[in-house]
C-alpha cells in the first residue's frame, strides 16, 4: 500500500510537469495504464485477506479517481493552451480585403422613377406603362393637340416608318398618351402614375437629350378640383425634397390641361434664399400640370360634365440633376461605371 500512497502523492506533480498532450498520454499510461501500480494492485486484491479487501479496494479506487481528475484537468488546460497557440498563428489582418463581393448598382433614373412612383403609390395610385412607339392620335389628337400644333413638326417630334403611312407613327414625346390609353381601359376613379422613356428631336446638350424620361400623373373622379392638384403636388414636393418645401403654381398653357400651371418648388438647397441650384431665384421649376381638358375626356370616352381630373408631368433627368447636382445629362446614358457606382 505504500506504493499506492506514493503514486497518490506523486501523481499531481508528474501530471503537472507534462507540457504536451502526447506527454500526458504517456503519464496517463504510467499512472493508470495496464502496467501501472494501480492496475497491478487492483489485480492483486484477490490475494488479500478478504477482510482487508474492502478497505484496500476503496483506497485504490479513491486514488485512481483522483489521478483521473488530475489528468482530465491537465488535459483541458493543455488543450486550451494548444488552441490558443493555434489561434495566435491563425491571426490575420482583417483590414485587408482578401475577398471582395461587388454588387451592381441601380441606375439613378430607375431609383428616381421608383421613388416618385412609390410616393404616389403611398397615396393609393397605381403604376401604368405604355408603348414608346405610339400613334399620333394617342400622343397628340387625344390630348387636344391639333394637327397644326408646332410640337407636331418634324423639328420637334421623331416619326417612324411603320404600318400604314396614313397612321402617323411617332416616338411618344411625353408619357401622356398612357393617360389616354389608361382612361380608355378603366372607368373612373383613376389614380395613376406613369414612369417611362420619351423622345424629342433635340440635340444633346447639358440639359437636353433626344431620349429622356418622365413621370406622368393622372387623377380622375367625380369631385377632383384644382385644390386636389395643389395639395397633391405639395405632398409630392415634401416627400421628394423634404419637409418644409413649399410650392407655387404659375399659370401656363398646355393643350391637354385647362387651367394649366407650372409647378415651382422652393429651393431645397438654400430654402428659398437664392443659390446656384435655383439660379438665385429661390425656386426650382419642376413640372407642368393642370386640370384635364374636357376635350381629352371626350376623346377617351369620359363624360366631362360628370368627371373632372388633374394631370401632371415631370422630367426624371431634371429631378435627378437638380437633387444630386449632376452636371450633364450625358451622365445618365454613358453608363460609366465611375458614375453608376455613385448611384447607391
Amino acid at each position: 500500500m505504500d506504493e499506492l500512497e506514493q503514486v497518490a502523492d506523486d501523481a499531481p506533480g508528474l501530471v503537472g510537469a507534462v507540457n504536451s498532450l502526447e506527454g500526458l498520454k504517456g503519464v496517463e499510461t504510467e499512472l493508470i495504464g495496464k502496467n501501472s501500480v494501480i492496475s497491478r494492485m487492483r489485480r492483486g486484491l484477490s490475494a488479500l485477506d478478504p477482510d482487508d479487501r474492502p478497505t484496500a479496494g476503496a483506497r485504490i479506487n479513491e486514488v485512481f479517481t483522483g489521478v483521473q481528475v488530475v489528468i482530465a484537468d491537465r488535459r483541458r488546460a493543455l488543450e486550451i493552451a494548444e488552441e490558443n497557440t493555434l489561434l495566435v498563428s491563425d491571426r490575420v489582418d482583417v483590414t485587408v480585403p482578401n475577398h471582395r463581393v461587388t454588387l451592381g448598382t441601380e441606375h439613378l433614373l430607375t431609383t428616381v422613377m421608383d421613388e416618385v412612383s412609390d410616393i404616389f403609390v403611398s397615396l393609393g395610385y397605381r403604376v401604368a406603362t405604355g408603348p414608346e412607339v405610339e400613334t399620333a392620335w394617342y400622343n397628340f389628337d387625344a390630348l387636344n393637340t391639333p394637327s397644326t400644333h408646332p410640337a407636331r413638326a418634324e423639328s420637334d417630334t421623331l416619326y417612324v416608318d411603320f404600318g400604314d403611312p396614313s397612321d402617323e407613327m411617332l416616338l411618344r414625346t411625353h408619357t401622356s398618351p398612357v393617360q389616354a390609353r389608361y382612361m380608355q381601359d378603366h372607368v373612373p376613379p383613376v389614380h395613376v402614375v406613369v414612369p417611362g422613356r420619351v423622345f424629342r428631336a433635340d440635340s444633346l446638350d447639358a440639359t437636353h437629350s433626344p431620349v429622356f424620361h418622365q413621370v406622368e400623373g393622372l387623377v380622375v373622379d367625380t369631385d377632383i378640383t384644382f385644390a386636389d392638384l395643389k395639395g397633391t403636388l405639395e405632398y409630392f414636393a415634401k416627400a421628394f425634397f423634404g419637409d418644409g418645401r413649399v410650392i407655387k403654381l404659375i399659370p401656363h398653357f398646355f393643350p391637354f390641361t385647362e387651367p394649366s400651371a407650372e409647378m415651382h418648388v422652393s429651393c431645397f438647397a438654400c430654402d428659398g434664399s437664392g443659390c446656384r441650384v435655383c439660379s438665385n431665384s429661390g425656386w426650382i421649376e419642376l413640372m407642368g400640370c393642370g386640370m384635364v381638358d374636357p376635350n381629352v375626356f371626350e376623346a377617351v370616352g369620359y363624360d366631362p360634365s360628370a368627371v373632372s381630373g388633374f394631370a401632371f408631368g415631370m422630367g426624371v433627368e431634371r429631378l435627378a440633376m437638380v437633387r444630386h447636382g449632376i452636371t450633364h445629362i450625358k451622365h445618365f446614358f454613358e453608363n460609366d461605371l465611375r458614375v453608376l457606382g455613385q448611384f447607391v
Partner: peptide, 22 residues
C-alpha cells in the same frame, strides 16, 4: 382662376382606393 390667383386656392390630397404595385 388666373385673376383669382392660384395662390389663393386651398389644398387637398385625394387618395386612391385600389392602388399599389402589381
Amino acid at each position: 382662376a388666373r385673376l383669382y390667383g392660384f395662390d389663393n386656392f386651398p389644398s387637398r390630397v385625394p387618395t386612391g382606393g385600389d392602388g399599389g404595385l402589381s
